[in-house]
Computed example of a mutant assay.
Amino acid sequence: MPLPKHDELRIPIMTLLNTNGVMKLRDFVEPLAKHFKLTDDEVNEMYPSGNGHVFYDRISWALSYLNMSGLLNKPKRGIYDINEKGKDILKSPELIDSYIETELKTREPIRGKNKTGISSNIKKQSVSNNTPQEELYASFESIKQSLFDEILETILSKTPAAFEKLVLQLLQKMGYGGEVRNAGLVTQYSNDGGIDGIIKEDILGFGRIHIQAKRYKMDSTIGREDIQKFVGALAVAQSNKGVFITTSGFSKGAIDYANSLNGSTTIILIDGKQLANYIYEYGLGMQIEQTIEIKKLDADFWDSMKDE
């Protein structure tokens, strides 16, 4: 099942505290996972950045909102206890969300005059049902997707020959060709035999990857027939490794055919979306615009200090 949002964790968290008394943050993971019938893979799901577990983070934010709204006490860092106000409102669980919303809005003026500051973001977060990290990653992903379109539009404004050269540069940046000098070769346009480029995998050229690059409109589709022709071109070139790269997409028939070759010939299909993603991830023709550094408490450092 989908991971519960942070606001969906509120009542189960309060119920656990009401039953068990004081609990540490990490002690919520197992009982909540059992309550929502989550698999180990779901519990261990990481953010796209690899920095932190999604489920654990949602528990942390649910606890934070409950604490900020005065329903839980936090006697020490990472330790929570339900108070009398929390116990009282738990008798009417349908009121908890609206109560938290009201309390966060009440706190708004207290947190400063800047209406676009942290307090405003907290209020928005409780309404959106996403944690701040999830909002950040969603914004980042939205920026990336917009940039992917810009990458493809830019490629389409260039010549087919420039696209073939770009594809070779990308594959070499991805590690194909290794340390071989001048590993990438663009074939002559007038006599390419259906092969647009070649990458030598070793110095003597015993291993070769043959490439076909099609610069089509993004809403176009490459069918099975084009892939079959490419397989024929590979046979003539006595090669069993091919990469078909396009700015458009592939039909289901093309994908199924490429997957059915059973290793006699291996064809990798890279559509426009994946192409743009590779260009972005490997930094080909890209530059870093801004770096955002997000920090968190070093648990080992703070836990080594003596508690009051």
Rank of each mutant, 00 (worst) to 15 (best):
G177T: 04
Q145W: 06
E179W: 01
E164V: 11
E153K: 14
E201Q: 09
V167H: 06
F163L: 05
K165P: 00
L147D: 10
V167S: 10
G194I: 10
A183I: 06
I198R: 03
K158G: 07
G177W: 03
N191D: 15
E201V: 11
E153T: 13
I203E: 15
L152I: 14
D202T: 02
Q169A: 08
L166I: 01
A183F: 06
Y176G: 03
A161K: 07
N182R: 10
I195E: 10
I198K: 03
I155N: 02
G178V: 10
N182L: 14
I198D: 02
L171Q: 05
I199H: 01
F148C: 03
I151C: 04
K200M: 10
R181N: 08
R181W: 07
T187Q: 15
F163K: 02
D192Q: 08
L185G: 00
D202Q: 02
G184C: 08
P160W: 13
Q172G: 06
L168I: 15
P160S: 12
L185D: 05
Q145V: 06
L168S: 06
V186Q: 14
K144F: 05
Y189S: 14
A183L: 06
N191K: 12
N182P: 00
P160N: 12
I195S: 07
A183H: 04
V186E: 10
D202F: 01
A183Y: 05
F148Q: 04
G175E: 07
A162C: 06
